[in-house]
Amino acid sequence: MIDSWLHNLPIWEMAIVCFAASFLVGWAIHVVTGRLAAGPHGRSWMTVSPGLLSPIGVIFGLLVAFTAAQVWTDTERASAAVAAEASALRSVVIVSAVLPEGPRGQIRELVKEHIEHVVDEEWPMMARGDVTLKISPPELNKALQLTLSLTLETPGQQTAQREVATYLEQALEARRQRILVSRSEVNPVKWLSLIFLGGCLQVTVALVHCHNRLGSAVSIGLFSAGFAAAMLLILAHDRPFTGQVAVRPASLLQVMPDS
C-alpha cells in the first residue's frame, strides 16, 4: 500500500508528505462542503448532527491505537532479536577461547564473516523486505558443523564444545526471528481503513461547522494536523528495519571478534 520510497524518506520529508496530503484533502473538503452549504440544499447539510463525531472518532482512535501498538511491538521484537543474536555470538566468541587454537580461530573468523555478511548484505535486503528464511547463513552453519565435528579430550573443552554449539543454535534462532519480523508491516486493509475513517471525520467536521466558514476551517485544520501526526507516527515505525528510525546492527558490530 505505502511505497518503499516513502518509508525511506528522512523524518522531516515524511512529515511534509503526511501533513501536506492531510491539509490538501482537508482544504478540498472545506471548499466542497462550503459550496454545498451555499447551494439549494444547504439547510439539509447543516442538519448533520455533531453526535456523529463521537462514534466515528472512537472507531478511528481505536484503529490508530491498535495499529500503533502493532508497529511498536514489531520494533521491540526486532530489537530483541538483534540483541539476542548479538548476545549469542558474543558468548560463542568468549566460550570458544577454551577450544584448541586452530578451531578457535576458525570459529571466530566465521563469526566475523557472518556479522559482515549480515551488515553488508542481509540488512539492506531486510530494509527492502526481500530476505527470506530460504537464505541460509553459511558462516554459522559452517561454525556449527566445525564445532560438532571436533574430537576433544579434556572435560573443559568438551563442555565448551557443547556450549558453543548451543549458542550457535541460539544465534540461528535469533536470526530466524529477525528475518520474520523484518517482513512485518501494516497491511493495505488497515491503511485503507485508517485513511477512509480519517476522511469520514474530516467530512463530518466540515458538515457540522459548514454554517461557520472560519470555524469549519479551524476545526478541519486542527483535525488534519492530528491525523497527519498519527499517520507519521505509524509510517515511521511501519517497517522495523526501514527508514531513519529503523533498528540498526550496532550491537552485532560491537561483538565482532578481532581475530
Rank of each mutant, 00 (worst) to 15 (best):
E13V: 13
A20W: 05
R77D: 10
E116A: 15
P100F: 01
S136K: 14
I29R: 03
V119A: 08
A127P: 03
P240A: 03
K134R: 14
E139V: 02
V25F: 13
A250N: 13
E85H: 07
M231C: 10
L110D: 14
V71K: 05
I59Q: 01
G61Q: 02
P138S: 11
V118H: 02
Q161E: 00
F227E: 09
D130C: 04
H7P: 06
E153Q: 12
Q254R: 15
A165H: 04
T67G: 10
R213M: 02
S96Y: 06
G57V: 02
C18A: 15
L146H: 07
I94A: 09
L233S: 09
A246E: 02
S219F: 04
A20R: 10
V93N: 13
T159G: 09
Q145F: 04
E139N: 13
L9T: 11
S96K: 03
H41A: 15
E121V: 12
A160T: 08
L150K: 03
F227A: 06
D130Y: 10
A86Y: 06
P188G: 05
L252N: 04
L172S: 07
M231K: 05
S251H: 01
E109F: 02
S216P: 00
S136Y: 07
Q202H: 01
I195N: 10
P10H: 06
S44Q: 11
A97V: 03
K190T: 12
G34I: 11
R90S: 14
W45K: 10
A20E: 05
Q254A: 15
A80K: 08
R183F: 01
R108C: 09
A246G: 01
D3N: 07
N141P: 00
W5P: 00
G221K: 11
L62T: 12
F19I: 06
G156W: 02
I220K: 06
T132K: 10
R175W: 06
A78L: 12
E113A: 11
L52Y: 14
V189K: 09
T159A: 15
L89D: 10
L24N: 03
P55F: 04
L52C: 08
D130N: 12
P155G: 03
S216I: 01
A230E: 09
A80V: 07
P155S: 13
S91T: 06
S259E: 13
R178A: 11
F60I: 02
V93K: 07
L99A: 00
D258Q: 13
S216F: 00
S4G: 03
A37H: 15
G156N: 11
M256Y: 05
A127K: 06
V25S: 10
E116G: 07
I179H: 07
L52D: 04
T75K: 14
G26R: 03
P40Q: 14
M46S: 13
I115W: 08
L233A: 09
G57K: 00
A15P: 04
T132E: 09
S49H: 09
A68R: 07
E85Y: 08
S79N: 13
D3W: 07
W191G: 08
F23W: 15
S259A: 14
M256Q: 15
L180D: 08
M256S: 14
A37R: 15
F223L: 13
V255M: 04
